[in-house]
Design a protein around this nucleic acid. Sequence first.
DNA 1: TATCATTGTATCAAGTTGATACAATGATAA
DNA 2: TTATCATTGTATCAACTTGATACAATGATA
Lengths: 244, 244
Amino acid sequence: MKQSIDFKQFLTNESEWLPSLSVDCVIFGFHDNELKVLLLTLRNTGLLALPGGLVHRQESVDEAAGRVLQERTGMTNIFLEQFHVFGQLNRGNDAFGRQLAAANGIELPPDHWFTQRYVSVGYYALLDFSKVMPTPDERSDSIGWHDVHNLPGLALDHTLIIQKALDTLRLMLDHKLVGFNLLPVMFTMADLQRLYETVLGQSFSRANFQRKMLSLNSLERVEKKWTGGAHKAPYLYRFNRKNG
Amino acid sequence: MKQSIDFKQFLTNESEWLPSLSVDCVIFGFHDNELKVLLLTLRNTGLLALPGGLVHRQESVDEAAGRVLQERTGMTNIFLEQFHVFGQLNRGNDAFGRQLAAANGIELPPDHWFTQRYVSVGYYALLDFSKVMPTPDERSDSIGWHDVHNLPGLALDHTLIIQKALDTLRLMLDHKLVGFNLLPVMFTMADLQRLYETVLGQSFSRANFQRKMLSLNSLERVEKKWTGGAHKAPYLYRFNRKNG
DNA sequence: TATCATTGTATCAAGTTGATACAATGATAA
DNA sequence: TTATCATTGTATCAACTTGATACAATGATA
């Protein structure tokens, strides 16, 4: 189950955390031909933000990212990878910290530790939209997927963080087969092509896309077929990690 | 000129620095068919380490990397790029901090801030070996270039940091023309090929390498020729940032 | 003037990519 | 039952890229 941390208590536990450092997770999913990113609505503020948090003194930064994601979204066993450090001077932590506290009925003293500067390490993950059921933690009113190409205003520098994560995803997609992580275990060639076209923002010739994908020897054709239209049924494919 | 910080005074200035965060710089150079990396020998310890340091409260992490490199090596205007965060639990900061202090005749109390855990952001730079004259700071006995494929033991996790920087460099070289930064302004096709072969650890057919490089339209042939052997003189080339 | 290692470029086959064509499929409608 | 239709799998051909090899040009040295 979700592990809960009461905000008031959290504010008294400065010694638990590594100072100056935070993590933020950009969780990508794919649905309805849109590349989505998972965002929390922070309690009583209406603020949209990435699932993020601090680093315990006795855990690695990578571990912190996994734990934070679990605590804030309920999702476990998500493979996260760091992609960039956001270390500018004015990321807005002071105002953000005060706003969060105020939303919980607390006014922070001028130099409260939680309003100090944080440098954030960005992590990203690609996952099968249909396989996860994110649930918000106590510090959030809700959690939801948002089209990455049509984002509302976000807290802190989270728009920038998502943009950089998207750049990284495009680079990865270009020369590794990471894309499969965004799809269900079995998918059609059309699904795969729509994913590539959405993420990379360009279209490909169907015949050539299919030839290219099959030539990688990483797709296993599943004999079971699929029905759902007045036309030839497409094969289903499954990613085969042999040449991942 | 080099900006100096006395170590004893440094240890009293905890409030100047952002806690928990450090930067380390992997500076690559190319000489004698070897890919080199710049290392400091830390004063009175014989320890070899990357030029690294802490982050001021009022500077961005990127700025800190540039400043640290300048302070510790005297080199200015080096284009640095972050490539990875090293946030494991046991990077060895406690022992390292004590060893450094001891080398300066200081024994640190059990919980001195300098022995605490640091998460380090790795930065790398590629530069023309012949154009720089690194000079060590007061905290170092010497500074020098070391063959990246034949490194001695290093302080902390710096061997890992260099390995990761090398991975990044190879990836970059593979699909951008960053390699030119490691060469003098003018170079022969053979120089360029040796650089690629050394960094990527594989050899290329001379004719095809030349064809490929010229096809990128990023090399400008300089009319001046080069002498230095009993054979046809090669053209000199210069990188042309048009299609960089 | 001959020698020689090195350099610049050409060539040909093999492999990859882009554009287009077309038959196969299988649910739906006539 | 048969025709229709959008979609799918694959073939084909030209354009382009890559790998392997060949060879003439160069220019200091002997």
